[in-house]
Design a protein around this nucleic acid. Structure first.
Lengths: 234, 234
DNA sequence: GTCTATAACGAGATAGAC
DNA sequence: GTCTATCTCGTTATAGAC
């Protein structure tokens, strides 16, 4: 009996995955705006109404894709972090740039999925609560790098403008106990700016402007890393 | 006869404007995804197919709105630049932050139009040639501020990483003859990062993260301005 | 109970005839 | 400019199959 239920559950999982895979393919082909339940069903040899057993609506399917996309960038970033070289005094900066590059590489390889999570909110846009966990994965990884660097060799955090003292304290408390307030502000700022660089490239704003984009990005990412104090001041 | 043609042309211009106005209203209300030709036509008391005399397709209407949006940010930025206080020695930095604030204010006031131009490319994403002029307006304004600052008091441009020398020379030539190569790179980088900050705020990535967003942005914008050398090194 | 198929409703984009 | 026709879409109700 449990075997039967297990089989059913397995089938359900497989079909759910197949739907998401096909949806992802259409996403890559035509973008989120043109993602159509009917087309997905057609390609899978089902009838459109059957999909509603798996996703209550088109927006729910999109939400699932959003969560998967956040997890995919997060996984790419974490893998880069884990396999980065760790030799001597630039170790933290090396890890930082490795993560930045991984995020950018993923974004360029999956532009439509990237647009789904870091572009304009697509549907009627009510980001469900389920997305906040996966969404913060990459950001928290960047935080952990900075925290490790700070623990290792108390680098001097950047100066903190007076109006931000309260905000900095709140942020630092939320991001981790052993994080200097000024650093927390710098981190969030670097985080947003990093994705600004990637978004401009993925969304075509650099067309006819920046040509050697690898070098441009690497240099910018490293500068961001320096700004959050990943290198000891000489 | 020319009078008749003139009248026709005038009517055409007026109706085109009316269509765009109504489309903009719907855009502001519901976002680009829900912009519907039929609803626009209904509101204007026409029949939907009549719109095709003015815009060959829904995407063409969107393209027109995109161009208008670029022009609107550009105008807001230029106005802020023109009316910013110019009292010594922080004049250039003051102008820079004024422009940044104006762009952010416009974005927060018109989130859906902002999403149209700085979010995910909506249709099949082939940015028509018509958009590149208006699109560069804001960027060129930032360039002009940096150029003025550099002319005034040859500030030291930031260090230029070796792999970027070629790119920097090309960029500087494109952006203006009297611009140090290293500065051109810093400018493009600051430009992308500025919009990264704004996009994260407009698209909700700062929800439950940054609270005092005015102070956060002002401080970040000023730091960006410093990075492109708008203050003489003390 | 859980899935799938049929059929239908309402809304939309677009093309062509008038 | 309008009217009409065609096609696609999201979604739901309903009825039958495992």
């Amino acid at each position: 009996m449990t075997a039967v239920q297990g089989a059913r559950a397995r089938a359900r999982i497989e079909i759910t995955a197949a739907i998401k895979d096909e949806a992802r393919r259409q996403l890559a082909a035509d973008g989120a705006a043109k993602l159509s339940l009917r087309a997905v069903a057609r390609e899978l040899g089902m009838v459109s109404s059957a999909l509603y057993r798996y996703f209550p609506s088109r927006d729910d399917l999109l939400t699932a894709l959003i969560i998967d996309a956040y997890d995919a960038v997060g996984a790419a970033a974490e893998k880069a972090h884990a396999t980065a070289e760790t030799d001597a005094p630039r170790a933290h900066l090396t890890r930082w740039t490795a993560v930045c590059r991984a995020v950018r590489a993923w974004a360029l390889a999956h532009p439509h999925e990237y647009a789904l999570i870091y572009g304009s909110p697509v549907p009627g846009y009510t980001a469900p609560q389920d997305t906040v966990g996966p969404a913060s994965r990459t950001g928290l990884l960047l935080v952990s790098i900075a925290r490790a660097a700070y623990r290792d060799k108390g680098v001097a955090p950047p100066p903190l403008p007076a109006p931000l003292t309260g905000e900095a304290a709140r942020l630092a408390a939320a991001l981790g106990p052993d994080l200097p307030p000024a650093l927390s502000i710098a981190l969030v700022s670097a985080w947003a700016q990093l994705f600004g660089l990637i978004s401009f490239e993925v969304f075509g704003q650099f067309n006819r402007v920046v040509e050697d984009r690898d070098a441009f990005f690497d240099s910018a990412a490293e500068r961001l890393g320096r700004e959050v104090g990943l290198l000891p001041k000489p």
